[in-house]
Design a protein around this nucleic acid. Structure first.
Length: 150
DNA sequence: GCCAACGTTGGC
DNA sequence: GCCAACGTTGGC
């Protein structure tokens, strides 16, 4: 079982949206490195839900992967902002996962707190200039973060 | 709103 | 295959 961190701007899709929907397909990732991490995810993996472009940014909850290696439907939808006309339906370019909400944390675990407790070679999201929306989280780091809940 | 840090695109 | 130009992300 592996841990991950998945970013989203709450103005677009935040943890409140997921709370209402219970589960969702994590669509719209259009970066190959991030997609490669998505393809590595397995059912049962856990992912931190991270709010980006907020004041402050940080982790707001936990999700569980409930379906892996899905072809992202939005790549074939001309009305979607994530439409990719270059993606061949016979050989889709973008894969993702389906997640369910596991937990909403009582208080956000801020980026600042992560930076205070970990080095930037321990956790990708705290590296300066990092823009990857999907990143792995080492187990011991994940367990430490989970111990901060409530 | 600024801008650093990337990733992507496309001409050559 | 190089790299300049451009677009995007996301903290601040």
């Amino acid at each position: 079982m592996n841990y991950w961190l998945m970013k989203s701007e709450p103005i677009t899709y935040g943890i409140d949206h997921l709370f209402k929907e219970k589960q969702c397909i994590w669509d719209g990732v259009r970066n190959y490195q991030a997609r490669n991490f998505l393809k590595m995810m397995q059912v049962g993996d856990l992912a931190f839900f991270y709010h980006s472009n907020t004041q402050p940014p940080g982790i707001v909850g936990l999700m569980r992967i409930i379906e892996s290696n899905i072809d992202d439907p939005s790549q074939f939808d001309p009305d979607s902002r994530y439409y990719d006309p270059k993606s061949d339906p016979q050989n889709p370019r973008w894969q993702t996962v389906k997640v369910e909400l596991a937990e909403i944390f009582n208080a956000m675990i801020t980026l600042e707190r992560l930076k205070q407790n970990f080095r930037d070679d321990q956790m990708m999201v705290i590296k300066k200039g990092n823009r990857l929306s999907i990143t792995p989280v080492e187990q011991n780091i994940a367990e430490t973060i989970l111990s901060w809940r409530n």
